[in-house]
Design a binder for these strands. Structure first.
Lengths: 238, 238
DNA sequence: CGCCCCTTTGATTGTAATCAATGAGGGTGG
DNA sequence: CCACCCTCATTGATTACAATCAAAGGGGCG
């Protein structure tokens, strides 16, 4: 049940034993489907952890002005609210950008598994550290001009979606609105449209009818100054 | 030796046993003093972890353009390169902004302690999650206009320095240049100067001769939309 | 058919970068 | 002891990037 994107992604970094894989699979608590624009989680403390199985979601905060800033995307196989619930995430929410299929897990049971299985512990560490590394890269990305910023985001999405087999060599389905991407980049929805058109006219990106195509991945990466090392899909040291 | 700011900060969140405190104290490997502007660590993989005992440092990345972006400050009692070394941090460096006193620890021994002592494990988790929470707040902060951004940073520093008793109710010593702060906010050094003067003339901030004074903390917090919850110095749930 | 959401375009304003230069300490060597 | 230099802070002028305001297409769905 849990199987598909979650374990596949974990095992990209950490080899799990048969036991560990089984233990994780038996955690499933409840499965549900959320419509777009609905919150998966708010800042409340619960014993629930959420595993997104399909669809695009995001972690975000809302400013007093009403502006929303997305601080990270949540893709299939990503765990939410493991650590960002409660004290750390009072104002952090997780929202569905497209219809999402979500599995609820018991946090306390997962914590227990972490204590029992070194492989699971390593895997959860890896997930957390990747989030940290990614957040820092987003901070850096915020210093780039908007066109490179968008290019960088698309490069990141391409890699992350390839890992879960939701992207091919040159593109991916991306049923997310320009407004959402604007909030992830911290720019206005008008500006992202202009910036996108400039990338289109340079031939670096094609994005229409919910499909992104990147004809020249190396070219876009160079333009975005994108180096996938920070995502650390290539293994996890100590 | 390790004692002062490190344990004090850890025990803010996690109660350590006598054993655990002793184990951590016996980790000290080597102590040195670095001049300002020198790197404490580069992206190389080593068995060293660095504990800053005094002075201000930062984690940063350098863009191809030569611009530096600081992604977080490192204050006395902060551990560096525990997790951000190697694969995750190839392009992440830690640099001293002022002269710093640094203790080198053995990473492998610390990892061993984490495995042996639940309190230490919790403490290291807490440190890591606070970094993650802080990074996300910095992403959000990047969407604010520059004056509020600076105000927010100063509010954060005030809280973090108060925890290690390096700030009083209304201010702190801050021997860091405007250029450094500009790189932490992602704005130019000219602009930070102007923005600072606007905060000065509103009476919200006084910053001269390496000392920051915040006459009306609540006022500055309101202006910056600052809520210290994300720093989670008030305890750590599960 | 018409409404709604998303995208696109135009015009204007505003924020911040860049370029250029001056001022204000602190330290060093003649 | 003073002249010089270096770094950091400050100011002015200009340019560029991006927000905002306003409005018009376009496509899907009831």
């Amino acid at each position: 049940m849990i199987e598909d994107p979650f374990l596949r992604k974990l095992e990209r970094a950490v080899q799990l034993s048969e036991d560990e894989r089984y233990a994780l699979q038996s955690l499933t608590f409840n499965r549900r489907t959320l419509p777009a624009r609905h919150d998966i989680a708010t800042g409340d403390v619960t014993d629930r952890v959420y595993l997104v199985m399909s669809g695009f979601a995001c972690r975000y905060k809302t400013l007093p002005s009403g502006n929303r800033r997305i601080v990270s995307f949540v893709l299939p196989g990503d765990l939410c609210y493991m650590h960002d619930a409660g004290a750390f995430g009072r104002d952090l929410r997780v929202g569905a950008l497209t219809p999402c299929s979500v599995v609820d897990l018991s946090r306390s049971k997962l914590v227990e598994l972490i204590g029992l299985h070194p492989g699971i512990s390593r895997a959860i560490w890896w997930v957390t550290l990747r989030e940290l590394s990614r957040a820092r890269e987003w901070i850096v990305n915020d210093t780039r001009p908007a066109d490179r910023r968008l290019a960088h985001l698309l490069c990141e999405l391409l890699v992350c979606l390839q890992v879960i087999q939701q992207a091919d060599e040159h593109g991916f389905e991306f049923p997310v609105t320009q407004v959402d991407v604007a909030d992830a980049l911290g720019i206005s929805h008008v500006h992202i449209n202009r910036v996108l058109q400039s990338l289109r006219s340079s031939g670096l990106v094609a994005w229409s009818s919910q499909h992104v195509t990147i004809p020249d991945v190396d070219g876009l990466r160079a333009y975005a100054e994108f180096d996938p090392a920070y995502l650390c899909f290539e293994g996890f040291g100590p």
